[in-house]
Amino acid sequence: MERRTFLRGAVFGTSVAVFGGTLMQGAAYAAPAQNGASPYGGLLAADANGIMLPSGFTSRVIARSGQTVPGTSYTWHGAPDGGACFADGTGWIYVSNSELATGGGASAVRFSSSGSVTGAYRILSGTRNNCAGGATPWNTWLSCEEVSRGYVYETDPRGATAAVRRPALGQFKHEAAAADPVRKVIYLTEDEPDGCFYRFVPATWGDLSTGTLQVLVAGTAAAGSFTWANVPDPDGSPAYTRDQVSGAKIFNGGEGCHYANDTVWFTTKGDNRVWRLDLLSSTYELAYDDSLVTNGTAPLTGVDNVTGSSSGDLFVAEDGGNMEICIITPDDVVAPFLRINGQSGSEITGPAFSPDGRRLYFSSQRGTSGSSSGGITYEVTGPFRTTA
């Protein structure tokens, strides 16, 4: 059964860590977020692509599964999932995973400085259920296999260098990854109902071939302090990684993961929660929980991929719900940003901003058909705010 995710993860350009610390400075989140008015206003009637957007925003279709990407000769993959953007000279690249059980992998679309599509190509082949992942500060894409004892593959968004399997990051049901350039670690989520939250500490920052896999250790409460403990056998054999450390905190279906400004956010689909780790104080809390919304109907359900903007807003995609991307603002307001109509059999995946923060990319994994062969990848352009 196909399931979601993202990434959101940190997005980095060639000259500046776009969402790894340079942007989202000063975001001061309390918890948990409550229903409120969007800073972008309400959603308008659906456009020609079936997307409801705030005033001033427009959408376009970038690619459709099984069809040639317009302006190229490349056929777009099925079941598009996690994604990220990378600066590339004067333009940028959007990478997208394929959550197919066979022939998964990942592809990329290249854009000019004006946003025109100039190319599309494969960057990873021969893998399974590539769900989410994350970008690194050295401009590679970590593509994660969402299968039991799955791997992380480090790929080149430009397609010039062959992808490399990184077993040191552990073998488990990988979902998303987020790089922390301050502590020089990679955070990892696990899509299991009794999954854990991990970090990988490379022996050398920038080289993921060797290092130490650790798991978050904490109590059972929804808030508290945490520590890290080494995972004895990162290969997950004979015991799964999530079962190896006593006291490892259990999370119900880890999904998207995003780092910015000494903070990690990640989502858990089993309980519709967004978690926040304060890395300076080594504490955790709920940034959002649909069951704790006290002022009306919870707008965000089916939490999945997550990314961030320069304003400090989090953008959380829904797997299910009513096919929305919702925002969580630094002043703890949660509200819809967009909604896709007529695609209830799908999920939203792969939200990622262009390096300049003016364009948001994402996919509907199964589109209007409800099948992995019906995926659609979109771009939304408009006046994204730069400050909260």
Rank of each mutant, 00 (worst) to 15 (best):
G211K: 00
D278F: 02
A176T: 13
L216Q: 06
S225M: 09
G170L: 06
V201F: 06
G270Y: 12
T220L: 08
A223H: 12
V164L: 06
Y240C: 01
E192T: 05
A222Y: 13
A229K: 12
S209E: 14
T294L: 11
L279K: 04
D191P: 08
L277G: 10
Y284N: 07
L169N: 10
S281E: 12
L292I: 00
G236A: 07
W265P: 01
Y288I: 05
G195T: 09
V182D: 14
V293C: 06
G159D: 07
V182L: 13
F226W: 10
F266Q: 02
P167K: 09
S282G: 04
G195E: 09
P202A: 11
D289K: 00
A203D: 15
S209L: 12
A260R: 00
A239P: 02
D207N: 15
C196S: 14
A221M: 07
S291E: 14
G253E: 05
F197C: 06
S282D: 15
V215H: 03
P232I: 06
G256V: 02
F200T: 02
G253M: 09
A229S: 14
Y259F: 12
S246A: 15
G270V: 12
K269W: 04
S237C: 08
S281D: 13
Q214L: 04
D233E: 14
A260M: 04
D262I: 00
L208C: 08
K184P: 09
Y187Q: 07
D290C: 13
D233Q: 14
W228C: 01
S291F: 08
F200G: 01
R273I: 06
E255V: 05
G247L: 12
L279D: 10
I250Y: 05
Y187H: 12
T241D: 11
R183F: 00
P238W: 01
L280T: 15
R199M: 10
I250D: 04
G159W: 05
V217H: 07
A203R: 05
G247T: 11
S246T: 15
S237W: 02
D290K: 10
C196W: 00
G195D: 06
G253Y: 01
A287I: 04
Y240R: 11
W275Q: 03
D290M: 08
D243M: 13
P234H: 01
G247S: 12
G256A: 10
F251K: 03
T161K: 05
N261T: 13
P181L: 07
N261K: 05
V274E: 02
S237H: 09
D194G: 13
E175Q: 06
Y198V: 03
I186M: 14
T227E: 05
T204Y: 09
R199K: 15
Y198E: 03
P181R: 03
K269V: 12
L292F: 09
D289V: 01
V217F: 04
R242D: 10
T294Y: 00
Y259S: 08
D180S: 09
V185M: 01
A163C: 12
A229P: 07
T267Y: 00
Q171M: 14
T227H: 03
N261I: 00
I186G: 06
I186Q: 10
T204S: 15
G254E: 01
T283R: 13
L277H: 10
N230W: 02
F226M: 07
P193Y: 08
Y284W: 04
A177M: 11
A168C: 13
A163N: 07
T263Q: 15
L188F: 08
E192A: 13
V215I: 15
G219P: 09
G224C: 09
T267G: 06
G270F: 11
G254N: 03
D233A: 14
A260T: 09
